[in-house]
């Protein structure tokens, strides 16, 4: 990765997360699920970086490793803190991690399971404030009211419980909670995929407004490419735990370099019926991350696969400035992007 070190907010290097498969009475480890396998990328301050892929491709695990909700197996997660230091989040102990929690927060996918049904909005949004030292109740109430206004909810609602709110409103509450500690990086794990399309637009607009207002950086995890195209500056595509392509949004959408990206783009719903026949239907199913195929993980389903694809694992190379791809044939293929 050539991007200059001092411009980056986050740099992930060779991140791996393997989950052991245990069997039998003694729970012996008989194999490993390579949920995230050698993933490297970077995020610049103030940008929205999207991570896309099918379900089970490791994008959520990657985001949770960055927040250290799960402990990565190996690799580095370099984060630039507010005071300019660069720390390796992956190597920190639980105690060292605590001050860092303020700087990275998360917006969850499911607005129903992400809010404790037994707490009022005041307690939910105020909890990060409370455990980080804002023990004065009046000050906390004031800040919660401010946060609720910020996300477009009435401050009078703070005595209510989550069950009184719709999915979109709950997602706003989740956003307010994430913003409580003035984070610099917000990891949004499919924040709109559980919502209706009309509500999705409202939440995305809110996120964009908050970004420009508060100078936030987003790591946006999604499977919906139309959403990603709308909000992100750069996009990375994951397949079975690996990055296959990473590029600025326009490049990725109009000149994809990886056959998997091409297939994904062709699956985006199009309102024009004449264009629909061009959809590429992938054969077979997603590779098993516990028992991946040899060489390029995508080769059994790739319509451009050559001999080398089943033998050698492609590495992520920078084909054009800022456009990284992991495909043996990337340079020779002419792939179709969004038309």
């Amino acid at each position: 990765m050539k991007a200059t070190q001092d411009q980056l907010l986050l740099e992930v290097k060779n991140l791996r997360k393997f989950f052991p498969i245990r069997r039998g009475f003694l729970q012996r480890i008989v194999g490993q699920v390579r949920a995230v396998d050698d993933v490297s990328f970077f995020i610049r301050p103030g940008e929205t970086f999207s991570l896309v892929g099918e379900s089970g491709c490791g994008k959520t695990t990657t985001s949770r490793c960055i927040l250290r909700a799960v402990r990565p197996t190996s690799g580095q997660i370099l984060f630039r803190t507010g005071d300019g230091r660069v720390v390796d989040v992956a190597a920190l102990s639980a105690d060292e991690l605590k001050p860092l929690r303020r700087e990275m927060q998360m917006i969850f996918q499911d607005p129903f399971s992400s809010l404790n049904p037994r707490m009022t909005l005041l307690d939910i949004v105020g909890e990060p404030l409370l455990v980080n030292g804002m023990t004065d109740r009046a000050a906390r109430t004031e800040r919660v009211a401010e946060l609720l206004k910020l996300v477009g909810l009435r401050p009078e609602y703070m005595r209510r419980f989550p069950h009184a709110f719709s999915g979109g409103q709950r997602q706003r509450i989740g956003i307010a909670r994430a913003l409580a500690l003035h984070p610099r990086l917000v990891v949004a794990d499919e924040p709109v995929s559980a919502l209706d399309v009309s509500v999705q637009a409202q939440i995305l607009n809110l996120m964009l407004d908050l970004q420009s207002e508060l100078g936030l950086t987003y790591l946006f995890v999604a499977h919906d490419l139309s959403v990603v195209k709308h909000i992100s500056e750069r996009v990375a595509v994951m397949y079975v735990g690996r990055l296959v392509e990473m590029a600025p949004t326009q490049d990725l959408f109009y000149t994809p370099k990886h056959p998997y990206t091409e297939a994904l783009l062709s699956a985006v719903p199009k309102p024009d019926p004449r264009l629909r026949s061009k959809r590429i239907v992938l054969q077979g199913s997603v590779a098993d991350p516990a028992n991946p195929p040899s060489g390029c993980y995508f080769h059994p389903r790739c319509r451009y696969a050559a001999d080398i694809c089943s033998r050698a694992t492609p590495t992520l190379v920078e084909l054009e400035p800022g456009h990284f791809v992991a495909c043996h044939r990337a340079a020779e293929l002419k792939l179709t992007g969004v038309v």
């Binding site: 996300v151 999705q200 407004d209 908050l210 959408f253 783009l265 985006v268």
Partner: peptide
């Protein structure tokens, strides 16, 4: 790919009218 912007109509968000009084 149609314009996703069609689906994502901007609306009067709270931040656009932030300031004195709500």
């Amino acid at each position: 790919m149609a314009e996703p912007e069609q689906d994502l109509k901007p609306h009067a968000t709270p931040s656009s009218s932030q300031g004195e009084g709500w």
